[in-house]
């Protein structure tokens, strides 16, 4: 057991899979000799060599297209897109190519690859380097979408993503890279499509993802200690496949649902979860489900502005208290 950062967990996860399987290769901008702009790939080039860890030009379409061609013909590539906002310049692969090849070819074409990317706000980078784009990906049939919140989950879910036969979008949160967590020694392998109850509770269910998980947990402690509200916090971890059973079971127990989403409000993942709960567990609810999101605006750069648009523990506490009438 050791305490490592989320950043080092990325390195360890990639290294674990590259050491296990020679067909795992890794490409991206500045990922090899420089070790990545977030220093989340330091040492991989030295450990696995220039044939398996490759720097690319600033050519996001070439990166994702090359990953796909390699995946179709037998490799298991991990491709890095430096900032998830850049998905917009290579979205053809994410929306049209990876997820549709198998279906259109009646099962002939395979696409076992992972796209890792730095997602999310908190770095004061402004509207084009801070977005949470999980909903861009979640809406596309054929993709899997994962967003870990802890170093342990980074390793286990990354390993599961690499071993998965489908294209997986792996969203690393930039503001979590420096955070730390306990990680056991030896191989770590998790399961896609599984949510995790990170704080059991009985009064309401709060569902969060990535950076929002720690904020939901902080809010839950305040709600418990200062207001006597016992929240169950669920880290959804995997948007596709989605672990609806864990969510529905929790709502059946607590009878109240909150989502905490970093993405702008419209078409966020929380809306889909609220819809599922409304369809399938309406009579379990004692009140309306409530979504706590970033407002529907581009993200500002200034810290004072960025800090107030993302959901905070304070906003979660206030919203839950108001909704529960406490």
């Amino acid at each position: 057991m050791a305490e490592i950062t989320y950043r080092d967990a990325v390195i360890r996860g990639i290294a674990q899979e590259m050491a296990r399987d020679n067909d795992v290769v890794f490409l991206g901008e500045d990922v090899a000799k420089a070790g990545g702009v977030f220093k989340a790939t330091v040492g991989l080039y030295e450990q696995f060599g220039p044939l398996r860890v490759r720097d690319t030009p600033i050519s996001e379409q070439a990166i994702l297209g090359a990953a796909m061609g390699a995946a179709m013909t037998g490799l298991k590539p991990i491709a890095e897109i430096m900032f998830s906002d850049f998905f917009a310049v290579c979205f053809d692969y994410i929306a049209n190519e990876f997820p549709k090849a198998r279906y259109m070819s009646n099962g002939q074409t395979k696409c076992p690859l992972v796209v890792r990317t730095g997602n999310g706000a908190g770095s004061r980078f402004g509207a084009q380097h801070s977005q949470s784009v999980e909903n861009w990906c979640m809406m596309i049939p054929g993709l899997k979408v994962v967003a870990p919140s802890t170093p342990l989950d980074v390793i286990g879910l990354l390993a599961a993503a690499v071993r998965d036969p489908d294209p997986v979008i792996f969203l690393e949160h930039k503001s979590l890279y420096a955070t730390k967590g306990e990680v056991p020694d030896g191989e770590i392998l998790d399961t896609l499509g599984t949510a995790k109850i990170v704080r059991p509770g009985k009064d309401c269910t709060i569902i969060a993802l990535a950076l929002m998980v720690s904020r939901a947990l902080a809010a839950a402690e305040t709600l418990h200690d200062e207001h006597g509200i016992d929240c169950e916090v669920i880290d959804v971890r995997s948007l596709v496949p989605l672990d609806t059973q864990t969510i529905l079971a929790s709502v059946a127990k607590t009878n109240r649902l909150f989502t905490v989403e970093e993405n702008p409000r419209l078409c966020g993942w929380g809306a889909e979860i609220v819809s599922i709960v409304a369809d399938e567990a309406f009579y379990d609810l004692d009140g309306p489900p409530v979504r706590i999101t970033t407002p529907h605006i581009p993200l500002p750069a200034a810290d004072i502005l960025e800090d107030i648009v993302l959901p905070t523990p304070g906003r979660i506490v206030d919203t839950v208290r108001r909704s529960l009438g406490s």
Partner: peptide, 15 residues
């Protein structure tokens, strides 16, 4: 779209 994809298949052959 398929020009980069062909590059990837060629990369596999090279690797």
């Amino acid at each position: 779209a398929h020009l980069p994809i062909a590059c990837g298949a060629a990369w596999r052959a090279q690797y």
